[in-house]
Amino acid sequence: MTTLLASPIAMLPALVAEYVDFAATHFDELVVLTIQHALLAADTIAIAVPIAVTLGVATTYDDRAATVILWLAGIAMTIPSLALFGLLIPFLGIGSPPVIFALVLYSQLPVIRNTYVGLTKIDEATLSAGRGLGMTRRQRLRRIQLPIAMPVILAGVRNAVVIVIGVAAVGAYVGADGLGEYIFEGIRTGNTTMIVVATIAVSLLALAVDYTFGVVEQYLRLRNGETIDQALGTRFLTTLLSVRNTHQ
């Protein structure tokens, strides 16, 4: 530790070699932990998104409900994750259940908020056109509002996923699966290499998922006819899809 602080830059090549070496020798475990981490996040999102979108749609029906729901979801965000995990242990035991429960709670605000914003920011003329065509409220929601709002909702989901992956790492402290295990074990045993490799892995996972969702979001925006600066991945995806479409 002290030698490291003395000349961190001179130590860098040696350190990198050490990290690579650790990653190579623990490759299988790292892959398993990363998959577990991703699965935990996927489970959470699978539960959280339907709830949040439903609540988001509900908020558009009633302004007062909107205020209350958004306020509650905002309050939930301020509960420290570690404390919430701990407090859920007596009810849900240790391991993934309390973590998933808490993460579902944390995912609510971004998704509800974006659903609400996406649905309400739609041009009034578009909606009255729908009404003029004789659509019922439910039809307008399904055929006009949700498709137009989809990129905004997805942006909220993207936001939530990033939060979930990050907080899930903390969940390892109460026994949830994932890369957090290595971080805490590294801290406990003073194994800095383990900490660094695990934090890099979890950061890469978050960045990769964020980027993927970003690309899908851009794709949806393009499909809605918006003009945007496309990320490399979006251009790749649109080319890929258009190639496939022409082959059909």
Partner: peptide, 11 residues
């Protein structure tokens, strides 16, 4: 912001 808070602290 995308890097998990625990990762920033642990690093």
């Amino acid at each position: 912001q995308t890097i998990p808070s625990l990762a920033v602290i642990a690093l």
